[in-house]
Design a protein around this nucleic acid. Structure first.
Lengths: 98, 98
DNA sequence: GACTCATTTCGACGATTAGCTAATCATCTC
DNA sequence: GAGATGATTAGCTAATCGTCGAAATGAGTC
């Protein structure tokens, strides 16, 4: 839970996720869209993997990143719903998932 | 946008918001629920104010904190919706709000 | 095997963060 | 005004973060 919000707290990582909406991309293809070094992007990918927001698939020399939309959706909607808004509510439950 | 996710990335701050679901509380009442010092809690409150997730109202010696549920809701649901899931979709739009 | 390309790992750096104690500010009560 | 109370600010430490260049790893190609 913390890891998801942590991952989303960086604009670069949010932009990576937005890019992946339209389909899988290789690490290099993603990095080309940003003005930071490859190692920096690789670190961002690691954070996204850690949060389970993306899946890394090796394909030859490349690594293809896939968006795990269901994880993103469940984490955020689940959190919002715990406040009793945004669709199905669960106003009573009081938990702070790590 | 970043500030909201940043604020939510800390378990203590998420728990503060969860506490405020049931109604406004003073800084002291909130702090009593945690095992960290008052100044540390005050810093957490500052982060939540910065993210506009809470409203601080002075009442005599105390400061009463209110949850700004609509801000939380719009930030998170808005983000999820930009991915085309979670209710009303907006699959085409591509933005990374700061 | 040697070479090349794609990506990650390794150190290192400056900036930020969460935490603490001690001090200060603000307000109420006597 | 002098305390007392609630909250924040100041100043510090330790840890984490985003960034980089250089080096290392992995996977194809000749």
């Amino acid at each position: 839970m913390s890891q998801v919000f942590k991952a989303l707290s960086d604009p670069t990582r949010r932009r990576v996720l937005q890019l992946l909406r339209q389909g899988p991309l290789s690490a290099g293809e993603i990095s080309d869209q940003f003005d930071v070094s490859k190692p920096t992007m690789s670190a961002h990918f690691a954070v996204l993997r850690e949060a389970d927001l993306v899946h890394a698939e090796k394909a030859g020399k490349s690594v293809i990143y896939h968006l795990k939309l269901s994880v993103l959706e469940e984490a955020l909607l689940g959190f919002v719903h715990s406040f009793g808004v945004g669709g199905q509510a669960s106003t009573s439950k009081q938990e702070v998932t790590e």
